[in-house]
Design a protein around this nucleic acid. Structure first.
Lengths: 138, 138
DNA sequence: CTTGAACCTCTAGTCACTAGAGACATTACA
DNA sequence: TGTAATGTCTCTAGTGACTAGAGGTTCAAG
């Protein structure tokens, strides 16, 4: 049995965040000492590691809730879990795509004011003001 | 001179967001009709387009404030603007990198439960629970 | 037994909006 | 000119996923 601080150290999840997860119901309510402090065992540690890992992968709290519910009803098929993971993957791919477009435009823009022969107006500002200067839609 | 709704239509920025920008000082306070409704001209339209475009590119409100301040003091060099754009670019590149790693892991995970011969435990859940199953750090 | 770190609860703040209530203004049409 | 529909006003509160701080209590080491 270990304290919330210890759990925090082991999972790299901050103490207030752990309490917050408990409040949300992601984490079961911890046992308490006679002095009202939370005590955890390996079950708590594993659960929090799961949450942490999923958050790192960009899953929303809501999605994680669903996954946890599935864990607790192993009789149900894991189709839902696969679906959740797949839709997360889709989102990630969409974000990458969008960011690539931004990258292109930003690198074009931020090259603009480099030393030589730019007109007296700032190219960065002009580019932002005038969408028509973009090479493509975004 | 046109209304806030018209401005919203033209810039695709929602009405409450426009008011919010005004409150933050990103947008100058609009002129008002005798009945206290906001009226805008081209200056307002251009400014809002600028903000919208920068937000689309992922600039924070704070960064946009700095850019606007620069616009209003054209005597200053555009170095700062270039810097802001460059750091935005850096952030975008970092995000892309991170998302690529996630993409790899997610696609590995979400292939897991495909039809054939997975053990009775769900691979998605197992992967999330056990970081050691990750092919690499993330 | 004392000290200091860790813990407790509670409220409020972050960012960039978004939603809703309740009241007033403008516009289109009869 | 009357009226109804739509638009606009301000204000407060909510979103997601935390984070920070106040003010008080408990624990572990020496």
């Amino acid at each position: 049995m270990f304290s919330i601080g210890e759990l925090s150290k082991r999972t790299k999840v901050k103490v207030p965040t752990i309490r917050y997860y408990e409040e949300l119901g992601l984490l079961a309510e911890a046992e308490r000492t006679s002095g009202n402090q939370r005590r955890y065992d390996n079950t708590g540690l594993e659960r929090l590691s799961f949450i942490r890992h999923a958050r790192d992968l960009g899953f929303s709290i809501e999605a994680i809730s669903s996954l946890i519910e599935l864990q607790e009803h192993p009789d149900r098929s894991c189709e839902t879990a696969t679906d959740i993971a797949a839709s997360q993957l889709e989102e990630v791919r969409a974000k990458i795509k969008r960011l690539r477009t931004l990258e292109k435009e930003l690198s074009r823009i931020s090259k603009g004011c480099d030393g030589e022969g730019v007109s007296e107006d700032c190219y960065v500002l002009a580019s932002l003001a005038d969408h028509n200067l973009c090479s493509r839609e975004h």
